[in-house]
Amino acid sequence: MVNKLIAGIAEAIRKGFPTATHKIYTEKTEQGIQKPCFFILCVSQWYDAKLRDRFRLDASFDIHYFPKLGNAENWDTAETLRSLLEWITIDGNLIRGSSINYKIEDGILHFFIDYNLNMTQKAGTYEYMEEVKVYGKVSKTGR
């Protein structure tokens, strides 16, 4: 599911930043990045089982932006990312981002966003009870 979220984030970024001018990386590269560019990193996932076949998946992302010019470009990009990534599309479904915040460290924009999904696992076959016998009696007091 995280790969689908990364693809959805990349697709949303593409709406505001064309391929010709901004490259998107999803894997770490040692050297040779072309600025300006984005790097999408899933920093954590949290899985919480619910009743039966339901579960909740919380995924936190840090989207790095490497500017060509400087901090003014970073702040403009942060505002654009906020509007682009608030809603992303995964398998035709809209998913809303939450806990949006951003900061600049060492000239690199760090844009943080969480995506929280309530999901169900694929339903398997269940074996049902064929027959049940209940033995019991009522006391004389009726309780």
Results as ranks from 00 to 15, higher is better:
Val2Gly: 13
Asn3Trp: 10
Ile9Trp: 08
Ala10Tyr: 06
Arg14Leu: 09
Gly16Phe: 12
Phe17Cys: 03
Pro18Met: 07
Thr19Met: 10
Thr21Asp: 15
His22Arg: 01
His22Trp: 11
Lys23Ser: 03
Lys23Trp: 03
Ile24Met: 11
Thr26Glu: 01
Gln31Met: 08
Gly32Val: 08
Gly32Gln: 05
Gly32Lys: 05
Gln34Val: 14
Lys35Cys: 06
Pro36Cys: 07
Leu41Thr: 09
Leu41Pro: 01
Cys42Val: 13
Cys42Arg: 12
Val43Tyr: 10
Gln45Cys: 05
Tyr47Val: 07
Lys50Glu: 08
Leu51Glu: 09
Arg54Val: 00
Phe55Trp: 07
Leu57Met: 05
Asp58Arg: 12
Ala59Lys: 01
Ser60Pro: 00
His64Met: 08
Tyr65Lys: 03
Pro67Lys: 03
Lys68Asp: 05
Leu69Val: 10
Leu69Gly: 01
Asn71Trp: 04
Ala72Glu: 13
Glu73Gln: 15
Thr77Asp: 04
Thr77Pro: 02
Thr77Cys: 12
Thr77His: 03
Arg82Ile: 03
Leu84His: 00
Glu86Thr: 12
Glu86Asp: 12
Ile88Cys: 06
Thr89Trp: 04
Asp91His: 05
Asn93Gln: 14
Ile95Met: 11
Arg96Ser: 10
Ser98Phe: 04
Asn101Gln: 11
Tyr102Ile: 02
Tyr102Gly: 04
Glu105Val: 15
Glu105Gly: 02
Glu105Tyr: 10
Phe111Ser: 03
Phe112Cys: 08
Phe112Pro: 02
Ile113Gln: 01
Asn116Arg: 14
Leu117Phe: 02
Met119Asn: 06
Gln121Pro: 01
Lys122His: 06
Thr125Lys: 14
Glu127Pro: 02
Met129Arg: 07
Val132Trp: 04
Val134Arg: 03
Lys137Asp: 07
Lys137Arg: 11
Ser139Ala: 11
Lys140Ser: 11
Thr141Met: 00
Thr141Ser: 04
